[in-house]
Design a protein around this nucleic acid. Sequence first.
DNA 1: GTAAAGGTGTATACCGGTAAAGTAACAGGC
DNA 2: GCCTGTTACTTTACCGGTATACACCTTTAC
Lengths: 338, 338
Amino acid sequence: MAEPLTPVTLADVAQVAGVSKMTVSNVINNKPSMSNETRQRVQRALEATGYVVNPAARALAGRRSNLIGVLTPRVNWPFVTEVLHGASVAAEAAGLNLGIFTTANNPTLERERATLLRTLADGVLLVAPSADEEHIFGQAVPVVTLGAHGQRSIQVDNHTGAAIATRHLLGLGHRRIAHLRGKHSHILDAAQREAGFLATMQAAGQAVPPEYLQDGEFSEEGGERAARVLLTLPEPPTAIFAANDRSAIGALRAAHALGLRVPQDLSLVGFDDIHATSVTDPPLTTVRQPLEKMGETAARLLIDLIRGTEPAQSHVIFPATLVTRASTAPPRADRGSS
Amino acid sequence: MAEPLTPVTLADVAQVAGVSKMTVSNVINNKPSMSNETRQRVQRALEATGYVVNPAARALAGRRSNLIGVLTPRVNWPFVTEVLHGASVAAEAAGLNLGIFTTANNPTLERERATLLRTLADGVLLVAPSADEEHIFGQAVPVVTLGAHGQRSIQVDNHTGAAIATRHLLGLGHRRIAHLRGKHSHILDAAQREAGFLATMQAAGQAVPPEYLQDGEFSEEGGERAARVLLTLPEPPTAIFAANDRSAIGALRAAHALGLRVPQDLSLVGFDDIHATSVTDPPLTTVRQPLEKMGETAARLLIDLIRGTEPAQSHVIFPATLVTRASTAPPRADRGSS
DNA sequence: GTAAAGGTGTATACCGGTAAAGTAACAGGC
DNA sequence: GCCTGTTACTTTACCGGTATACACCTTTAC
């Protein structure tokens, strides 16, 4: 089984086994109705020649490549890596390969990669898309979105998650609560979290001044910048609810830089429960999304679609839970009143 | 140009433009020798039909898919993400797509993904392989390795980098210096770093007791475990040189847990200069690898190989530089002598 | 004993592109 | 006017698989 210079094709195997190409193909794909003897003969020939399929040919001829494509802006966002891990587990269990393609939020790249996946992949997982990119794929290939967009999507209950976080802060006695928004113009999840925050504040009879809504942009830098603005207001908030953990970590950094202690001078709640929140100083109270499980569910839903078994539900909403760590506490007496 | 239900093929475009398939193909691929008028007519037909190429067909017929495959154990190691970013820039500049495939250090997955890439990709980038996986690809496809393995590789000067780190600690007055090793049995880079450390210590006339070499396993957990062993020795080291930043961060955690202050009670040097080292407490002194640039160089080398232009060199070794932050200081007077 | 049914394997026609060879028309050299 | 060269396309033959239809041999039904 030394490395053959010319790739081995079905025809080569067929010749060695003394059968037709089709028979070899049928053995490889576990088609029924063939004698055990033939099957074994072909198996031996496969091993003797060291045959490997050509996915391109298979995709062209049979419209299936055993490949799931993941389209995501970046791979180094903790959110994405945890989802990927879950998806990868599900794909492996189903015997499918998983290929990751990054768009860097660049529309040109997005189109290009999407074009590639349209014909190359059996299904596409859209992770944390910046908008509804699903339409690029049309009917060409099934798509499942991780986030609040899309025809078929897996998401967390953003509204309730935000409400839990807000109620937690209210319950500690905070009244001056600010929110670091995500990119709500593009990302539906961000809008849902903001809405959950505002609804809860309103239900509690708490007004939210407009300057208490700042754009944290879902990033560490954005969070730091926005938190600086909030904390240098004439009447700064005593608590901040950030739309994701990365912006919360930025806010934490801003607080430290301004000499504020967390949680004594400022309470802070994030969203996502990425790994880093457990190792910040202090560890961050946050709203947990079961990211790995969501990735796994998304992949399984996609696999169902690929296999043609119409799945029971096309939108799955996972519950959000509060993880209480050390970044939240009652407000100091001299700052707590509104 | 609404979403066509049946994908548009070359033949469709050819019919609309009133030319042959080949002419359309030639226009798409910018072949010379065709009249401007025909070119424009085809262009119009392309736009009118909304044609997109079928990469699978192209790969099959033309034995080129415009895809670079990246094979890596995981995507959430900072080392990997930084390299990926560089590679992605180079690929984009060359008009190639980049697909990432993870192996999770699972030999079965490794083989499977490699098999896929053999025929799917025009070239493969092996990032941080756990061993010499290059042979899997044989002659089927050009391979460039990021690390000390392989026929064509991009790596940092591990030996000198380790020497610089060690000399830095020696220069501060440390004599009892320990090393957190990487998985030197599998990863050549780890072995080279260890050798650089030992050679420098020997050149300085400093003996390294065997218990001062502990396995940090390139991971945070491993680093923490190994550092605990070191720091609870009867004669603990006053400084630790870790084979990578992740194990250094683990050591930092162990030191904190044992009530040791860094750098007053323990000096710590890492390797890689990943982003996290600048935000730990204290920020970590480390040996910098220009990871992004290395990724870019690797991709460019691979692209040269794909294009058939035999590149000038098949091994590129980047210099390592010391980044001095706050985790190193002279040893305390009562602990510094050996 | 013949027909229908079932199991097993083969022949053929594609999938949607590309490479390579072929053709037609025209220009220029001598 | 003939040959050679060039330009601008077209024709043909694949790339390596899969779907479909069908051919062959037994077995079973009546």
